[in-house]
Design a protein around this nucleic acid. Structure first.
Lengths: 196, 196
DNA sequence: ATAGTAAGCAAGTAGTTACTCACTTATGAC
DNA sequence: GTCATAAGTGAGTAACTACTTGCTTACTAT
């Protein structure tokens, strides 16, 4: 009876995220989680009834933090194009500090194992898209972005680019600096988005 | 002794691709493969020594066909921008006919289980990027595409966009027409790539 | 002090997995 | 015809999985 349940639950969530970041083929099993947290395997199930509940808590953690970054940058001040650029960079910077995130969010394994999680991921992606689309609409109204942009389509494509980029980073075992890619992305996006 | 080994191996590869396309949570196990092919489970291992060998053969099949599409369109005639547009559409059309492909190529499950496969996926992505980059360079030389484009960076981002798009399609359980998205993509890409 | 509560554990269970073994049977070459 | 070869099978097995059970121990409120 060393720590409270809440502390342990947080530790377990963090353990899963760290395990996902390790590419040594280690699976995210109750045993592996327990070893990482420093408790016995059955104790894991004292804090979460089932493995699915653990993954659910992990997705919630990711959603909270990932959308937190996006939201705070998008809601900032300054011209829309500058905020979008900041959003890209801050997002990539955050992900690069939490290597487990893409492997958890985009692993089909997880989705196959738990259909509920697929819905949760969908909802995160939708919220993300909506935030970016709102930022694009602001920019269109202000005359910064091209008037003929479809805000939703464009937001979805920007998200797709980030996803694909992060996946390449993950497949290449994090061997390049993810935040640097924000500038590369912006070089492609700028002439596509900006008015004139 | 109904069929030859080669026939059975091809059937097994196809079974895996079809199993991956099913979103009912079914796993790609030797048992599931055997049932689909219509043989006993141990017979699967008569044709492939291990499960990894099966997945390797599957990745090879995917590489051959996926890169076949890209290569034939890229090597065609006509202006580079038209060929790139065609490439996007044909690529998405091909993937939409083989729903299992993204779930196999991008599933972390596969990568965690077998590091060799990760390399194979990397190689497919590199070959893909090189083909697109070549097409971009042609267009730049012909004055169709902007001269200040970095062909490699741009090719990687286009691939990333396709990957992210296909992933959204997969997460949304194939509920939208993938090939239609080629036009949406092109609307964003055109002003970013074309000269003037 | 003590009683209730909640965290902890050792040992076990049932299910699933990839893979093996000993054996049978179909097919094609001669 | 026969015989080597290779496809096929039923019946395992060892390893791993999520999860349970019964019991112990630490902390807290009174």
């Amino acid at each position: 009876m060393r720590k409270t349940g809440e502390q342990r639950r947080e530790e377990i969530v963090q353990a899963v995220i760290h395990l996902a970041a390790e590419n040594d083929g280690g699976q995210i099993t109750a045993q592996a989680i327990a070893e990482r947290v420093g408790i016995a395997q059955p104790t894991v199930f004292r804090h979460f009834k089932t493995r699915d509940r653990i993954l659910q808590a992990v997705i919630e953690w990711i959603a909270r933090h990932l959308l937190g970054v996006v939201g705070s940058v998008a809601a900032g001040s300054g011209p829309a194009d500058e905020r979008l650029r900041q959003l890209l960079e801050q997002q990539l910077r955050f992900i690069s500090k939490h290597r487990g995130l893409p492997r958890l969010l985009f692993s089909e394994r997880l989705h196959q194992e738990n259909t509920q999680l697929k819905g949760a991921v969908s909802r995160i992606m939708d919220a993300y898209t909506n935030t970016v689309a709102g930022l694009l609409r602001e920019g269109i109204d202000d005359g910064v972005f091209r008037a003929d942009l479809d805000a939703d389509d464009t937001a979805r494509l920007i998200l797709a680019m980030i996803q694909g980029l992060v996946m390449r980073w993950s497949i290449h075992e994090f061997h390049f600096e993810l935040p640097n890619e924000a500038e590369t992305m912006w070089r492609l996006l700028e002439p596509a988005l900006l008015n004139r």
